[in-house]
Design a protein around this nucleic acid. Sequence first.
DNA 1: TCTCAGATTCCCT
DNA 2: GGGAATCTGAGAG
Length: 196
Amino acid sequence: MARLTPAELLAGPVLEVAPRLLGARFHHAGVTLRLTEVEAYAGPDDPGSHAHRGPTPRTRVMFGPAGRLYVYFTYGMHHCANLVCGPEGEASAVLLRAGEVVAGRDLARERRPGSSDRDLARGPARLCRALALDLAQDGADAAGWLEPADPPVPPEAVATGPRVGLRRAADRPWRFWLAGEPSVSAYRPAAVRRPG
DNA sequence: TCTCAGATTCCCT
DNA sequence: GGGAATCTGAGAG
């Protein structure tokens, strides 16, 4: 099978794109990651997606063309990054949940002092920190930062399961990760908030 | 292993 | 105005 271009990698239904991103390399700000865990978000029809209620100032990037980076800020201190995929207006995206640092490890360590190598990009907010991604990159064209897996990851190496941290539509098995990878984030169901 | 606080943004009422 | 948010790190047991 011929090697895909980044644009081809991100074309098509999000449930096909997400597993294809596993093993791909993502470069930014001097650090290169090999993606080991992603989650699919399928636009307005997906109650778990930020795009569920239509475009807002925050989510407008998701409704744009494939290949853009959607970065959002949450919990007052964390950033998370998604790759927009599929046709423009569909608002489907893939959340980058975890990766293994394969180049620029010293830089990643500086950005995440005290973390073990395994934890450098283990979790969506940690991944953004290691890659120095924040709101300045929201809407940026990420195709140039992406290098498809070569050779592609075989389907039997991909595991699936429910998405993490969602209250709505949490049962959809749209999380994809490389089986046996130590850099995959631990599964944690959505936190239950107690009254008071 | 489990629980909880943290600090900002966005969106709904 | 208020509650929830695609989470993380620290501290207790």
